[in-house]
């Protein structure tokens, strides 16, 4: 019996309105010609033009992308190792501590992670003279640390689901454990690794709090630039920047969703066909 409740559908409708009206409003006002960001003064695209001619914005975007690319790649390698280790090695010395270390950054308030990273880098510079100046390196190190645990969570979830027997079959056929890892395990979990990388990339690109603690003079990422402007209030050029960012990410997520949905439907159709042909 299908139960469709009017109440639930109404809440669902209002819920989505709540989630999307602020963003839509922001997009609309990015085309506002008035300097007052919240009062409509006619249609204009001038804020977009001024955005593209603003060298600060472009520099900040490039720095953000550079940090996100490097940190998400290293975080994916380390996070995949951690996820595999947690799923496959159930007994080793210090496993409890290890699993604690892998989950703690997930729920650690960002302020604490940020402040402890900053103090760590200052003390380290004090003791060993490195890192000399804070900026790209320190931000990247901090981003790797907190985004690798997201990767390991995704990889671990996928590993737990995967059939152990296929790895045992490979070993039975003569592969050494590390060969099994490259021949079997990694290809099987590659979708999880990819989504882990995407998540790490997005988290790095988006982060304000930890970056604001670990940055140094002259290293302004895009979120930091927005942060410093937004603290002063709502401005139309931020509306334009926000619109571009939201639409880019939104288009990416929707495209990824559609591709995944199509692939899944394709797979189901193939399975049905195979089933029918072999009947």
């Amino acid at each position: 019996m299908k139960r469709r409740s009017t109440f639930l559908m109404t809440v669902l409708g209002f819920g989505f309105a709540f989630l999307y009206i602020p963003i839509l409003s922001m997009i609309v006002f990015s085309f506002n010609s008035s300097r007052l960001a919240t009062v409509w003064g006619g249609f204009s695209t001038k804020w977009y033009a001024s955005l593209f001619s603003n060298q600060k914005v472009i520099d900040a975007l490039l720095l953000s992308l550079k940090i996100a690319l490097v940190s998400s790649t290293i975080a994916t390698i380390l996070g995949t190792m951690a996820g595999i280790a947690l799923a496959r090695f159930t007994k080793f010395r210090g496993r409890v501590v290890f699993s604690g270390l892998v989950t703690a950054p997930l729920i650690m308030p960002e302020v604490i992670t940020g402040i402890s990273s900053l103090i760590f880098f200052i003390m380290l510079a004090d003791w060993v003279g490195w890192p000399g100046a804070r900026g790209f390196t320190t931000i990247t190190l901090a981003h790797i640390t907190f985004s690798m645990v997201f990767v390991s969570t995704i990889v671990n979830a996928r590993m737990v689901q995967s059939d152990r027997a296929i790895e045992e079959a490979a070993m039975d056929l003569g592969s050494k454990p590390w060969q099994v890892l490259f021949d079997i395990t990694l290809p099987v979990i590659s979708p999880a690794i990819l989504s882990g990388w995407l998540l790490a990339f997005t988290i790095s690109l988006d982060d304000v709090v930890i970056t604001s603690f670990t940055t140094g003079p002259g290293s302004t990422t895009l979120p930091l630039l927005i942060w410093s402007k937004v603290k002063l209030g709502v401005t139309p050029d931020i509306n334009a920047l926000a619109t571009l960012m939201v639409l880019t990410v939104g288009a990416g997520v929707v495209a990824a969703g559609v591709i995944m949905f199509r692939a899944e439907r394709r797979r189901l159709a193939d399975e049905r066909l195979a089933y029918r042909n072999n009947d």
Binding site: I21, I23, M26, W40, V234, V253
Partner: peptide
């Protein structure tokens, strides 16, 4: 997908969107 989509968009900008709505002169 509509529930997950905000996850991937900037947290800072989602806060900012509300600043626009709550301000004195907003619609």
């Amino acid at each position: 997908m509509l529930v997950i989509l905000p996850f991937w968009t900037s947290f800072l900008l989602r806060v900012y969107a509300w600043m626009g709505l709550m301000g004195k002169n907003s619609w």
